[in-house]
Structures are given as C-alpha cells and as structure tokens.
Nucleic acid binder design. Structure first.
Lengths: 232, 232
DNA sequence: TGTACATCAGTGAACGCGCGTTCACTGATGTAC
DNA sequence: TGTACATCAGTGAACGCGCGTTCACTGATGTAC
C-alpha cells in the first residue's frame, strides 16, 4: 500500500508561526486509525463512481468504510477536507506515473506515432479508472481556488516533462515552438479526456465513439499537428 | 426580444394521454408574468457567472429579478425546472446560430483555413458570453440524463451541419471518412471550449494562453488533422 | 509479567443551519352585462 | 362608460427536510513502574 502524502500533523511547536499550512487531515497516531483513514478514502472514491460529491453524505461514507461518523471527523477537518485528501493522493500518483512514463530514454527505439498512441491509450485507461474522483475534482475546481492551483501545478509538471520528451525528438517535429506545442497538445488531450470523464462513455456528441477509434483519432490529430506541413 | 421556446402549457384536453411531456414551465397567461419569467431567467444567468447553480438560492434569484419567491414558484415547477428552461433557451439559440453559421454557401469564397479560424474564433466568444450558464449545464449533465440527451441532440445537429460543410469541400480534405472527421473535430473543439468554460481563462495548464494564440493553435490543429499527409 | 493510567480511536444520537417549497393573503388585470 | 366578479400575478413569513457537525460516552492501545 503506497504511503499517503499527508499534509501536516496537528501538533506544532510553541513558537511556530509558519504560514497557514494546509491542514486537510488530522495525522493518525496509531496504525488502526491510519487504516480507518484509508478505508474512508477508498470508500469515498468508490461512492463517487455513481454520484457527485454533494450527493454522497458523510454518514454514507462512514457506513461504506465500516466506520462511524465520529471517527470520520476524528480524521478530517470536515467533508471538504476529504476531497482535498483524495486530490492530494491522486496528484501524487499522477506525478509519479508521469515522471516515469515520459522519460525520453524509454522511448528511444519507438516511432513518434507509436509513442503517441501508447501514451493516449494509457491516459484513457488511467482516467477511466479514476472517473468518479476526477468528475468530483473537475466540479470542485470550478469554485475552489486552492484545488485549481494544485491541479495547475500538476499540469505544469506534465507539460514540462512532455516538452522535454518532444525536445529529444526535435527532428521528427515541425512545429517551430516546441514549448507551445507541448502545452497545446497537453491541453487538447486532457480536455478530451476531461470530457469523457464528465459525460461518461456516451459523451454529448452524436454517437458514442469506440475506444479504439477514439485512441486512433487522438493519435492522428496530435501527430498531424506536430508534423504539420504548411500548404501556404 | 426573442420569443421563448417554452415546453407545453398546463391545460390539456381531457382525452389527452400523450407521453409524459416535459413540463418545465407553467405557461404565463398575461404579459406581465411573461416578463417576470424572462427577468428570472436573465437574473439567474447573471448570477451563474459568479457561482455554481447550487450556491445560488431561489430567494437570491427572486431578489435579483425584482420578483418574489412566490412568483418564482408560480412560473417554475421547482428550482431544477429553472435550469431546464435556461438550457432550452440556450439550445434554441445555439441551434439557430449553427444553422446559419455552417451553411456551405456562405463560405464558398473563403479558404478552409480562414473558415476554420473564423469559426473557432466565433465559438470562443459565444462560449465566453454564456460561461456561467454553460458551467452550470456541464455540471448538471453529469447527473441528469434528460439534460444530457438534449445536449446530445444539439451536438448531433451541429455535427451534421459540419459534415455537410466539409462535404462541400471534399477536395481540400484528406481524411477518408468525412463523417468521422466532422464528429471528431467537433469533439476536439468543443471539449477545449468546455475546458475554458469550466476553469475560466486560467485553465489548469501551466500558463494561461492568450486568446489569439488559442484560436491560432486550434485552427492549426484542425487543419492539420483534416489535411494530414501520412508519412508512412 | 502484571497493574494503573493516559491517550488515542470509535460510536451514533442529537443538534442546528441553510435553503427549497408552501400557503394564506393582497393587489392587478381582464371580461361580462 | 361603469360596476361586479373571476382569474391571474405577486408577496414573504413560516415550514420542514437533509445533511454536516458535535459531543458525551465506551472501548482499545500503549506505556510507566
């Protein structure tokens, strides 16, 4: 079980007047409560697959996690903190995954087309796995500035990694500004994925698109953009 | 003032056993109440620019519309019906606009590149204008099947128009399947616009992108995709 | 190894706030004669 | 043109439901001696 990236325990030194740290979670002291905490996180992510965060009540979460409402509040400063903690956990996982997946060395022997296809295909799966949570996060981001900034910083990291990867393949790319290209490709791919996250498989287009078709068209549009030959 | 596309008045004929019609609104009889209704719709759309639908209370809406809570409920079957009505109005407007904007004749003398740029640029503005409402609609679509289907039917219409336009320019396009191409281009463009709708100008990418850059890159990626020369 | 005590963890009924909805009433509009 | 009456429109205080949060209490764990 991957260790949780928790933010600041409750106990502080007397003279400690550091800036208002994010205190999303009351740090567990015993193993038992650590497990309760993780059960709560998992249960919530499960429940989010079927309903938005607002429609999932704290008592339901407690029930699903085989805990009580009281023990919930012993771990979290409130319902909002729960979503923050899930966000935290999700970002940690994404960051680690990205770092490995986008390392240029790994892709040295593969064509840009195949690289793109693998990437898109993997991302589609990854996003599907976390669909419920992602939907909840998308929704809260429309309001919560803090969550938005955390997501932005992850996105920024991903774009940097992507730019480095594209840089290592400069000869295969015709876009003049690689940083811009990385940024925009990221935008396109992730907004498509977000759309799927939000609306589910039957997205709000005419007909639902099979996964393979989707992956193929996404791959093609990225490639076409990166390798575009201007006709003017 | 464009006439509202309202759905079914309350009075029905005795033997009327038509399928469960959508009754989102209690049809106004006097002019006065018609105006109240529109004031309520406009006020809501205004309030939605700053807050999600859940955080806008009915009494606030009434206040903003210079009406009372009671008169609100005289027009709408409930708070949900209000959003449905706004959706209705929005879809009507979009449909009409699309029909005109995508008519092939209008674009006969323009290059595909310029056509695309104009379109993307217009859409960006249109979506910005309705940002608040769109955000609310995106959110409710994650839950409400009826709203989702209505949006889907609009999307379907737009894709059809787009396919017809692309068809009329077959010679400039290299994609084998034009229907698929229309569908996918629509998806890409609208998911990017949705992303902006949701997150505002400072979307969750590294740095916010200037409008002109955004329009330009969107234009280029669409063109590149439609005119792609396979290098294999 | 055993006992006492402190702290941590867990429980779930009760509380209270916010907000959607109702309802008894007043005022405005339109129509019949 | 005027009056009576019916219907429509508007008002806002009061209600009640749902759900997040609290709290007094019980049980578990760990530590000191």
């Amino acid at each position: 079980v991957p260790k949780l990236a928790l933010v600041q325990p409750t106990n502080r030194n007397p003279g400690d007047n550091s800036p208002p740290e994010l205190r999303w979670i009351r740090a567990p002291v015993q193993d038992r409560s650590q497990r309760t905490l993780e059960r709560i996180l998992d249960a919530t992510e499960l429940l989010l697959d079927n309903r938005p965060f607002d429609k999932v009540s704290v008592s339901e979460i407690a029930k699903e996690a085989k805990a009580s409402v009281g023990s919930f509040y012993a771990r979290f400063d409130g319902k909002a903190a729960l979503l923050y903690a899930l966000h935290e956990r999700y970002i940690e996982e994404s960051r680690a995954t990205t770092e490995k997946a986008l390392a240029p060395e790994q892709w040295a022997a593969v064509t840009l087309e195949e690289l793109t296809r693998q990437m898109v295909s993997f991302l589609l799966m990854f996003h599907r796995e976390h669909q419920g949570l992602r939907r909840a996060l998308v929704m809260i981001q429309t309001t919560d500035e803090q969550v938005r900034q955390r997501s932005a910083s992850l996105a920024s990291f991903v774009v940097d990694c992507l730019a480095r990867l594209l840089e290592s393949r400069r000869s295969e790319i015709r876009r003049p500004d690689i940083t811009l290209a990385a940024d925009f490709v990221h935008r396109v791919v992730f907004s498509l994925l977000d759309q799927i996250t939000i609306y589910g498989p039957n997205s709000p287009t005419s007909k639902p698109m099979a996964d393979e078709v989707l992956v193929e068209e996404m791959t093609q549009i990225c490639l076409a953009y990166l390798q575009q030959v201007r006709t003017t």
